[in-house]
Design a protein around this nucleic acid. Structure first.
Length: 422
DNA sequence: TCTGGGGTCCTAGGACCC
DNA sequence: TCTGGGGTCCTAGGACCC
């Protein structure tokens, strides 16, 4: 029988912010989305005060002031660095690790039970990550990923578990499932839970007891898998090596609404540049770029406009210049005067491994002669920390760039922002 | 004034082919 | 009056995840 563990960092972004601010130990803290728009993470204290996940900040500003809740802009340099430390530690402890998200990993613990009890192993993981990195994690252990998720859920919810729940025992599985609302099950979102509730399926146990065949007919094979997984039949494997990406997106809401073509053009040049950098990091080439621009859907008293356009290169590329050119061309096609634009984005798709593309017999496939060298020099300079090189089209003022008014220092990734001890 | 960003998978339906 | 069947590919939309 396979054994999976799900290790999940508690209140990850908020915990990262507190790590270098011991003075905030018991202070309620929230972390905001890009543009300081929504609450995307809450410390334990902030959760207890009833601040909801995902609320727009302006709706809870008064409440936050009243309770002395501190807000931070999101600081991905910090979170990504601490995340990689957590993941490296896990990789030292378990034979196979799947980094599932910035704050979660699945481990394959099959067979380790002969050497150490699963709960004891979970406690060791907790201790080591707590001691070495200063982040608290919870561990859920079960024969399927879906059950491991639920076990983790329970480990977080019930303090008596001391942060580790072993759900390998079927009786224990059933007892927990009966307590869990169906929408807390991995793979069941708002829409599905509504439809399931209408069928009288309200707990995870109800779903586990449903007929897989009937669920497949009425819903989909995805939910059928969930049913099986809840019954201890492992259908979702551990993915140690992340699959190759099929698309790369770079999109942002603007810090201030954009009304001039030239400013929007700068922004999409910047996004095309970022997206192409990611593409090179994946060692892929892309053929298609999709551009979208839109006004704010929350402003129902303002004229609305939203549009997108796709364009294709003759041959796949990872040269920033090709995609800036294409994005500019597409923007001219969909730009309309007289709107207050709130967001734009660039998406790359139709990927090829370098050298794998078969051009048509009569295609003009002449390429830029210095492409590879130029891009690699660009990437090297920009990643060295020594300075930045960029394309003129990205602009220098960046009036559209996002708002980050409560940003903490990049404590662990920049020499000039190291924490100081007085 | 102020409402995130980046992904994946599945399904239904239409276009097209023989 | 009567108008097939089977297959593939693509796209848009819907659902989910963090």
């Amino acid at each position: 029988m396979p054994v999976f563990a799900l290790v999940d960092c508690n209140n990850f972004y908020a915990s990262c912010e507190k790590l270098f601010r011991p003075d905030l130990k018991d202070t309620p803290v929230v972390v905001l989305s890009n543009n300081d728009g929504c609450v995307v993470a809450r410390s334990r204290e902030a959760k207890l005060l009833g601040i909801k996940m995902g609320v727009p900040v302006f709706q809870v500003k008064a409440e936050m002031q009243r309770h002395g809740i501190l807000a931070f802009s999101s600081n991905y340099a910090l979170y990504a660095d601490l995340s990689s430390r957590v993941m490296r530690t896990l990789e030292e402890m378990a034979p196979r690790v799947e980094v599932y998200s910035i704050d979660e990993a699945f481990l394959d613990l099959t067979g380790i039970e002969s050497a150490i009890s699963l709960v004891e192993f979970g406690q060791q993981v907790r201790e080591r990550i707590g001691n070495w990195i200063g982040i608290t994690v919870c561990v859920g252990i079960a024969p399927t990923k879906t059950l491991a998720k639920l076990a983790n859920h329970a480990a977080k919810k019930y303090p008596a578990t001391q942060g580790v729940v072993d759900l390998t025992n079927p009786d224990r599985q059933r007892r927990l499932l009966a307590l869990v609302p169906v929408d807390d099950v991995w793979g069941v979102g708002r829409r599905l839970s509504k439809r399931l509730n209408a069928l009288g399926i309200t707990t995870a146990l109800d779903l586990a007891n449903a007929s897989p065949r009937a669920i497949r007919d009425q819903f989909s094979v995805v939910l059928e898998r969930t049913v099986r997984e809840l019954n201890g039949e492992s259908c979702i494997e551990l993915e140690e090596i992340p699959p190759i990406k099929k698309q790369i997106v770079c999109s942002r809401s603007f810090g201030a609404k954009v009304t001039h073509f030239e400013l929007l053009r700068e922004a999409i040049c910047e996004y095309a540049t970022r997206a192409t950098e990611k593409l090179r990091k994946e060692q892929q080439q892309a053929k298609v770029l999709t551009l979208f621009i839109r006004t704010s859907p929350f402003k129902d008293d303002e004229p609305q406009y939203s549009n997108s356009a796709s364009g294709e290169l003759l041959i796949p590329s990872c040269d920033t210049r090709d995609f800036i050119e294409l994005a500019n061309h597409l923007l001219k096609r969909i730009w309309k005067d007289g709107f207050r634009y709130a967001k734009a984005g660039v998406m790359l798709s139709d990927f090829y491994n370098p050298g794998m593309f078969q051009p048509g017999l009569f295609d003009d496939v002449s390429t830029r002669s210095n492409s590879q060298q130029l891009m690699s020099v660009l990437d090297t300079i920009n990643q060295s920390g020594a300075g930045k090189v960029f394309f003129a089209g990205q602009g220098t003022k960046k009036d559209w760039s996002m708002k980050r008014e409560h940003l903490s220092p990049a404590y662990t990734t920049r020499w000039d922002q190291l924490p100081r001890v007085k």
